[in-house]
């Protein structure tokens, strides 16, 4: 069996989310995007208090409601029912985006279609002329939140790299991503380029390079 055909799976989505959660300092205000980022909420270590913001007007998002207790006027940005923790606050969109655009949110975790080696993010449109364009709050989050973490599978379902030299899909923001958590590796966007900080168990630097369409620097901290 050749190297290239070996099945490389790496971390599960839950393990990726736990890696992100471990990098969020106690006391942070955090906004989680829709999809894999939502898993981060369940992975916050015991004793660590982070406050989740959802842009539709809640600071202090709690877990999913118990069956039969969903309130359709208490939802998250993905329009799913949530709960509010004790000490939560509700507010209107003006205040919500003052938090986001005014730099008051510490960390935002987002999904990605593509991330470039300079930290450009594309996650709102494939540019398909037949698609209905929809942007939501993504461009506000990347422009205003202090640190942007991306959590994503390393490649598309077809196996195409999502970490690229230059994004080919329409951008959400330029030079905004700080860290990328994939099923294969944790990468940091630096002035020198993309640095691989951690590799998933059983995954080699060469395998990550092979599935990435941008140059990588080996800067592992878990060797």
């Amino acid at each position: 069996m050749s190297m290239t055909s070996r099945q490389v799976t790496g971390w599960t989505r839950e393990e990726m989310a736990a890696l992100v959660a471990a990098d969020i300092p106690d006391g942070s205000y955090v906004n989680l995007g829709i999809g894999i980022p939502e898993l981060v909420a369940q992975c916050v270590p015991a004793g660590v208090e982070i406050i989740l913001q959802t842009e539709n007007g809640l600071l202090g998002v709690g877990p999913e409601p118990a069956e039969g207790t969903a309130d359709l006027e208490l939802i998250n940005a993905g329009k799913k029912p949530v709960t509010a923790i004790p000490g939560a606050a509700y507010f209107h969109h003006g205040d919500s985006f003052t938090m986001i655009r005014g730099g008051h949110i510490d960390i935002c975790v987002l999904g990605a279609m593509q991330v470039s080696r300079r930290g450009d993010l594309a996650n709102w449109s494939t540019g398909d002329p037949d698609a209905i364009p929809a942007v939501g709050g993504a461009m506000d989050l990347v422009a205003g939140v202090r640190k942007i973490f991306v959590i994503t599978e390393h490649t598309t379902r077809k196996g195409e790299p999502k970490i690229v030299d230059e994004c080919t899909y329409p951008l959400t923001g330029k030079r905004v991503v700080e860290r990328i958590y994939t099923n294969l590796a944790v990468l940091e966007v630096t002035e020198e380029g993309l640095v691989v900080r951690k590799l998933a168990p059983g995954v080699t630097f060469g395998e990550v390079e092979e599935k990435t369409a941008a140059p990588l620097i080996d800067g592992q901290c878990n060797r």
Partner: peptide, 19 residues
């Protein structure tokens, strides 16, 4: 898609701030 309605797409926070 049928070209029967116009769309001005605005980022959500920009929409809120414009209002």
């Amino acid at each position: 898609r049928a070209g029967k309605i116009e769309l001005e797409l605005v980022p959500q926070g920009t929409l809120a701030e414009r209002i």
